[in-house]
Each structure stands twice: as C-alpha cells, then as structure tokens.
Amino acid sequence: MLHLLQLEWLKMRHYRPFKVIMALYMVLLPLCFLSFKTSFDFPREFDIDSLFIFPNIWLYMGYAGNWLSFLFLGFLAILLIVREFSYKTARQNIMTGMSRREFIGGKMIFMLAVSVAATLYYTLLVLAFGFFNTDYIVMQRVTEQMYYIPRFCLMSFGYMCFAFLIGLWIRRTGLAILFYLTYTIILEPLLRLLTYTRIFPKSKISDYYPLNAIEDLVHFFSDARLQALMSSKNTPFSLQALPGWEAVLFSTFYIALFIFLSFWLMARRDL
C-alpha cells in the first residue's frame, strides 16, 4: 500500500494543477467560512455570531469545506484519472508491471490520503478559529461535535470517489467535469424532486440519493436551531438534512459502490 501511495506521490509532486488546487483549498476554506458573516441568507432571528464559536464552528467550517471538497477535490479526482488516459500512461503503467487492481487501488489510497490531509487542515482551522472566537472555553463544548471530523473525511472521500468514477468512465477532462457538475447540481435535485412529488410522494426516499447523502454528512441544515426557524416557513420540498447516522450509512454504501464500479470498469476495459 505504501508502495502505491509513493508512486502516486512521485507522479503528483511535480504536477502544478495539484499544487494550485491544494493551495486554493487551503486559502479558500477560512475565507468561505468567514463569508458566512456577511453574505449568507440566514433567517433574521438567527444568531450568526454563534456559528463562529464552539461547538457550532465544527458544523459551519465543515459546511464551507463541503463546497470546497465538492469542487476542488472533485476536480482533482477527475484530473487524477483522466490525465493517465490522455497521456496514455495508464497503459504504460500496466505494461511496466502493475496490475489493473493496483493501478486503481493506488488512486484510491491517494484520494484517501488527500481527504485525510483536508480533514486535518479543517480540524486545525476549527481549533484555531474556535479558541480565538470563543470567550468562555468549556472543554465539553469544544469536543461536543467532534464527530464532524470523521464525517468531513468521509464527505471529501465520497466526492472524490464519485468524481473519479465519472472520470474513469468518460475519460475526457472537460466532459467529465461538466457531467460531475450537471449531475450533482441539476440532475440529482431534479430526480429527487420527481421522486418526492411523483414516484414516492412525501417519502424520505428522495433524500437517499448518493450525492445528497454525501452532502448531508456535513450540512448546515443539520443545525437544529436553524431547522426550527426554517420549518416555520412553508417549504415545498424537503430541506432537512439526513440524520447523521443515516448520512454515514448511505454514504458508506455509495462510496463502496463507486469503488467497486471503478475496479470493475478498469478490469473490463481495453486501455
């Protein structure tokens, strides 16, 4: 496993888009988080300052990271696989002596490593901002919502696995990114709406779609106080986030499915 991770590192360390993406991620995560202060359309009764202190900061920093992981880590995952086909290095790696399984396995391990690195950075930022902003530090308040740490990691890895599968399937950077965005932002919400209104009316099934499950791992809809304010408004369509354990369960299932499909697709394809 270490051997495969080292190989990916040899390939990536000189790759400028990789450095740019990681740098942007690091710069934008605190900036996105801070932008909640000004630009977010929260209900008027909602106390915005409470987002920046423990324990809520775990959720809201995580939600800023949700967008960034979706965009930047997703694109990184697409580049990670598509360029191996456009350079024809995937076939060269196999001919040089890798098995197809090792090839995909190495990518998965690398994506996991990137997710873990992003999660560590997220944790550090939360601690730094949290201790700086919170006036009364009570240890129990600091640790109360630490379950967002593994959920952040699962979310980042989930986006990457999905994007990776699309890249492996489509093999064109532009098209893959387009499909990744279209599916997540337009297609899946449409499917969910259709499910909610026509197929299984008013049921929760519409919330179990893959990208929704992954998104709900760290989503500000999970905030019960916010939820109480929002539900008083009459919303046509479920705006609730899945309960934590359901989000974890379904995300894990979908990630396993994406990984399985990636191995399967690679195994049966000519290169």
Binding site: K11, H14, Y15, R16, Y87, K88, T89, R91, Q92
Partner: peptide, 8 residues
C-alpha cells in the same frame, strides 16, 4: 508511442 508524464 512513448508514454510519459509531460510535465516531468
């Protein structure tokens, strides 16, 4: 064709 990582 010779297949390598062009940026390396």
């Amino acid at each position: 064709t010779p297949n390598f990582y062009p940026y390396m």
